[in-house]
């Protein structure tokens, strides 16, 4: 049962890193990918139908953590307090920018929202880097500081950005696509897919490395709870994946123009 609970947790955590990581990366590189307000709007359209569905992978991860590993959840979140607060603040600012951008047609408004999206995305990515720096070193009860931690945080944030760039290359069209491709140093559809596969693999490897350092098996809940919760989670997970896969299928085409955001 514990193994199954860990597997469900892994599915959601890795899903977040791969899918959510891509739209965070696109947000980080927004000023580079789109040179003016209209272009940035098109860049945002690459993640628009997905960002809501992407971020709930993390909410689900937190849910599985509190349901199946409540002690570890409490220890991690209160131990990594400052980094979690930074993550949440960045997340809120980023989402507020995304939700509000298209609602007012004034150049200054769009610029302000773009600023919120970029700042928020960087804060989210760096907060993950900060947390992962400690977790990879096996520290779960406090945040790590110092040049090593800063370097690790920066490296993780760079990975998020690279992953976002690779994703943008797969989603954009025309000159914007060329720009995304130029940054990743490749051209052509095959190259774009390869780059994205590579950054995806790096994200998954990072997630697995962190997960393996966590004392998951020891901190699972009581078997009475697990025997009810795990079958329920295991039963709904394929349905959730199918629903998301359907959304990705519907919006699979490259974007040529702006969307609702």
């Amino acid at each position: 049962m514990e193994i199954l609970a860990i597997a469900v947790l892994g599915v959601f955590a890795l899903g977040y890193l791969v899918l959510g990581g891509a739209d965070i990366g696109v947000g980080m590189l927004l000023p580079f990918l789109g040179r003016d307000g209209a272009e940035r709007r098109v860049v945002l359209a690459t993640v628009a139908p997905f960002f809501l569905g992407n971020e709930v992978w993390l909410v689900a991860t937190a849910g599985v953590l509190v349901g199946a590993f409540p002690d570890l959840e409490g220890e991690l979140l209160s131990g990594l307090f400052p980094a979690v607060v930074a993550l949440l603040a960045g997340w809120m600012v980023r989402d507020a920018g995304l939700w509000s951008r298209g609602r007012v047609e004034a150049r200054a408004w769009a610029a302000g929202c773009d600023g919120a999206i970029v700042l928020g995305s960087w804060t989210v990515a760096l907060s993950w880097g900060w947390m992962f720096a400690g977790l990879l070193a096996g520290v779960t009860d406090r945040v790590v500081t110092g040049p090593g931690a800063a370097l690790a945080a920066l490296a993780v944030a760079t990975l998020f950005a690279a992953h976002g760039l690779a994703f943008a290359g797969l989603r954009l069209a025309g000159p914007l696509r060329a720009r995304a491709g130029a940054f990743s140093g490749r051209s052509g559809t095959a190259g774009e897919a390869q780059t994205f596969a590579l950054t995806t693999a790096a994200m998954v490897a990072l997630g697995l490395a962190v997960g393996l350092r966590l004392p998951l098996a020891e901190s699972a809940v009581d078997s009475a709870t697990l025997s009810l919760l795990v079958p329920a989670m295991a039963a709904v997970t394929p349905l959730l994946l199918a629903a998301q896969a359907w959304v990705w299928w519907i919006f699979r085409h490259r974007v040529h123009g702006p969307s609702y955001l």
């Binding site: 409540p70 809940v221 919760l229």
Partner: peptide
């Protein structure tokens, strides 16, 4: 957590 966490988990999923 043993009782209260499970319903939060189901809410998210």
């Amino acid at each position: 957590g043993n009782v209260f966490g499970a319903s939060l988990a189901m809410e998210t999923l």
